[in-house]
Simulated scan of single mutants.
Amino acid sequence: MSTNTTSQSLAGRVAVVTGASSGIGAASAEKLAALGARVVVLARRADRLAELVERIEKNGGRAVAIAADVTDVEALKAVAERVEQEFGGADLLLNNAGVMLPAPIEELATDQWKQQIDLNITGLMNAIGVFTPQLVKAAAERGVADLINTSSIAAQNIFPTFAVYAGTKAYVSHLSRTLRAELGAKKVRVSVVEPGIVATELQSHVTDRGALEWLEGSKETMEWLTPEDVAETVGFIATLPPRVNLQQVTVMPTGQAS
């Protein structure tokens, strides 16, 4: 029996990436394509997706863009049907769509609460719901499939005014651990990636002054992660031998203490 643990390429695999129009999603799509996967990139901004596909193809990769809102389950069902018909189904799903809107709980920013829950939780579940049958089928046929969810260090650590966001990410992390117990026996690996501060568009959506000051101040004390740093982690997880499942990976800036 071979004990070789050398990472394998993703040639022949079909990867679906949500939240692919920028940041970690876009960088991960490029990384997975560079590793040989055919990548289906999903997000609402069709123009950004077109630019991403152009970059991937320019670098010799293969990608297809589908504009879709993950909070719309019917739209996602149509996407899953197209992926099944055109590519035989997905064997890797990276759930990366999300939003971060910190605010003191006493402000009762209920619209922002709903937005975070709808995208970070309901959107995640929609994607898992429509693509898990394809992952299970692919794993049975090929011996491995991957479900990778993007969470946050906020799922573990405490950040004032980030309560709702942190709660949604705690959901993502615990869901991932539980799904691993359910799907692992079917050869579907489930992993959750919990990054610390990453330089993405998430910060541009923040409106709370206190949170903005904290984020800006952190730039003076540490070098933030880049989306490519997290994408490298995603690529590493996906290219491990089928017997290896990294259940939870925390990726932190060297200078971030918590």
Results as ranks from 00 to 15, higher is better:
Glu54Leu: 12
Asp72Trp: 05
Val144Tyr: 03
Glu86Ala: 10
Gly98Leu: 06
Ala46Tyr: 14
Ala103Asn: 13
Ile121His: 08
Ala63Met: 07
Gly143Lys: 01
Gly98Trp: 03
Ala145Ser: 08
Arg45Pro: 02
Leu76Asp: 00
Glu106Cys: 08
Ala127Gln: 00
Asn59Thr: 14
Glu81Pro: 08
Lys114Glu: 13
Glu54Asn: 15
Glu86Met: 10
Ala145Ile: 01
Asn126Gln: 09
Ala90Cys: 05
Ile117Phe: 13
Ala67Val: 10
Leu135Cys: 03
Ala140Ile: 04
Glu141Gln: 14
Val64Asn: 14
Arg48Gln: 14
Asp111Ser: 13
Leu49Cys: 12
Gly89Gln: 02
Gly98Ser: 06
Arg62Thr: 15
Gln116Lys: 03
Ala97Lys: 03
Asp47Arg: 04
Ala80Asp: 01
Gly60Gln: 09
Glu81Ile: 10
Val136Leu: 03
Val70Ser: 02
Asp47Gln: 06
Phe87Leu: 05
Ile56Leu: 06
Thr110Met: 12
Ala67Asp: 07
Arg82His: 10
Ala138Lys: 02
Ala103Phe: 14
Pro102Glu: 07
Leu92Pro: 02
Leu108Val: 03
Ile66Asp: 07
Glu84Met: 03
Ala67Gly: 11
Glu141Val: 11
Gln85Val: 06
Leu101His: 09
Lys77His: 10
Phe131Asp: 00
Ile117Trp: 10
Glu84Cys: 03
Lys137Tyr: 05
Thr122Met: 13
Leu52Glu: 09
Lys114Met: 11
Arg82Phe: 04
Ala127Asn: 00
Val136Thr: 06
Leu76Met: 07
Ala46Asp: 14
Glu57Phe: 09
Gly61Ser: 11
Leu124Ala: 03
Glu107His: 12
Gly89Glu: 01
Gln116Val: 09
Gln116Asp: 08
Gln85Tyr: 02
